[in-house]
């Protein structure tokens, strides 16, 4: 089975760890616990009309910019799931900045954007129009780690891109 390294990147508190927990273990915790370093998980992803593939998901500690340790963790990655928090517009700018920085070292990396906390959509600062524009640049998913909405779809999109 083909194995690919997928890194979660985004500012702190946007829900990267929660998205991985939802995707890999189908669990969710309300408690915010900051990530130090990296937590690595893996999951096999079934693809229509293709061999399944294994995603090794690196949940990297949240940062607004990519520092040297962060860049070190990205080495060997073939996919990036950028994560922003819909209730904090600044986290979207951070995710896009991180993507730009990461692409300098990984020009061919597959990337998608998860705008998390859809369950709090009434409090979102990020607008539908902004995301509509961003969709021209990369796949965008509104996700809720709490309810699971959009989570499978975001990972499946990256898996499909890696399989081609």
């Amino acid at each position: 089975m083909r194995t690919h390294k997928l890194c979660m990147l985004g500012d702190f508190g946007v829900g990267k760890t929660s998205l991985v927990a939802r995707f890999v273990r189908r669990t969710f915790s309300e408690k915010y616990l900051t990530t130090v370093g990296v937590k690595v998980d893996s999951k096999e992803v079934a693809l229509p009309d293709r061999e399944p593939l294994k995603l090794v998901v690196w949940d990297i500690a949240g940062r607004g910019t990519l520092d040297a340790p962060g860049a070190n963790y990205l080495r060997g990655a073939s996919a990036l799931l950028m994560v922003a928090d819909g209730t904090r517009e600044a986290s979207l700018a951070a995710a896009l900045e991180l993507l730009e920085q990461a692409r300098r070292d990984l020009p061919d990396v597959a990337a998608a954007l998860a705008v998390n906390k859809l369950d709090l959509v009434e409090r979102w600062e990020v607008t539908a129009a902004t995301l509509s524009d961003l969709r021209r640049e990369l796949p965008v998913f509104e996700t809720s780690a709490l309810s699971g909405d959009g989570v499978e779809a975001a990972f499946a999109e990256l898996a499909a891109r890696l399989a081609t």
Partner: peptide, 9 residues
Amino acid sequence: NAAVFRLRS
């Protein structure tokens, strides 16, 4: 509301 947001985006 979430569905509306998703459709607009």
